[in-house]
Design a protein around this nucleic acid. Sequence first.
RNA 1: GCCGCCGUGGCUCAGCCCGGUAGAGCGACUGGCUGUUAACCAGUUGGUCAUAGGUUCGAAUCCUAUCGGCGGCGCCA
Length: 427
Amino acid sequence: MSFIKISEILKGCLENQEISIRGWVYRKRQGKNLIFLLVRDSSGFIQCTVTKNSAGWNEADKLTIESSVSLKGSAKPDKRAPGGFEISVDTISIIGLAEIFPITKDQSTDFLRNVRHLWLRSRKMNLIMKIRSKILDFTRTFFKNNTFVEVSPPMFISAAVEGGSTLFDLKYFDQTLYLTQSSQLYLEILIYSLEKVYCIAPSFRAEKSRTIRHLTEYWHIEGEWPYAKMSNLMDFQEALLSYICEQTLLNCKTELEELKVDTNKLTLVQSPFPRITYTESIDILKKKGSEINWGADLGYEEEKIIAQEFGRPFFIYDYPTAIKAFYCKTYKDKPELAMSVDMLVPRIGEISTGGAREDDKQLLIDRMNAIGLNIEDYSWYLDLRRYGTVPHVGFGLGLERLITWMLDLDNVIDSIPFPRTTRRFYP
RNA sequence: GCCGCCGUGGCUCAGCCCGGUAGAGCGACUGGCUGUUAACCAGUUGGUCAUAGGUUCGAAUCCUAUCGGCGGCGCCA
């Protein structure tokens, strides 16, 4: 017996044919002589009717919410049915009879987070995960179209990428290793072989942040690009984001509609994005009454004020060297400025950070000494500047923050199937 | 790390201010119902009020501590 997807029936080309489907019982309404089953599979929902005189009645009578079933019947259009189509059932076979399902009409976010393994069956989660998958597809296609090579960096690392305070450490046989915070340094290694490279991999941050935009494990879209400049980097990122939004609008129409996403916002994501320097952003903030001074890092509140100015994704670049990481390249004539660029969106704030990497061995060592890093921990990184160094730029984009912004979700938690936060790691 | 809010049947909440021994809806169960749209009607079931201590004749209610959760800031993507 071959089974068809519910979405095929809803397209309307299987009218009055005998068909079989497999799925789960989403709703059940029972009368004396008639049972309505709303059955879902990965593709959608369809109402099925079972009459008392049909062979399937006894099985339908036993069915509980979330039981898995296969059923045979004929599909026909019916105005009374949600979705416009209905299956009149001949036979039903119960695959797995469900116990009483804990998720009912009344739900709180706290409860749904406790039963996340069951909540993932909901229509909302189903749709978000489908779009997430598509966004990953679009991202890979865009990199591929721009001749980047996808690489697989390690998650176990032996030394910090940046500070060290936000690293998770773990027992690795008799030693201590860490979970990676970013794959950037490893991508930098690979450009010396493959040139343009990218990866889509998890990053781990032991930050005790309590916000709607932080996860301790998140998926990081990172790229490194030899010989490119800051302007190339911004061009590339805005083209990537525009492509993702454009393709999502094109390919996820029904999903976006069902999730009630404001597609207008996505239509506005087109090159060029507004670009302002850090110094300009300080001027804007001062005009708005902020007491921030040049040299201070922009906090979430400051970012929010500027984001409201634009109402769409934008860049802030050329930050003070003092507030940026050791590998950030500085301007020769203005060493107090670092070639660093953040991409920001309204409500969420930073969704990507990138910039030019210091490619001069001595300048890099000077920077590391100034910050107090142990040079020996990074000897392999310095080797990259020792043997045929090249200028290069790169960036890292937070996938969950991007999805949360695009779909206007309440919390990054809903953009990933199994979120890890400071307090939650189950299941 | 700092600040704020929350914790009452399986789920969602009321009761707390002003102390008198817990109430509703949903679910589940039983029965009824000729097409329902998270149906409807009737009945039944179900809670040491997060935990520990204190005040009191008496605590879900007032006080203290602890635990758990959510959110804001900082940090970041």
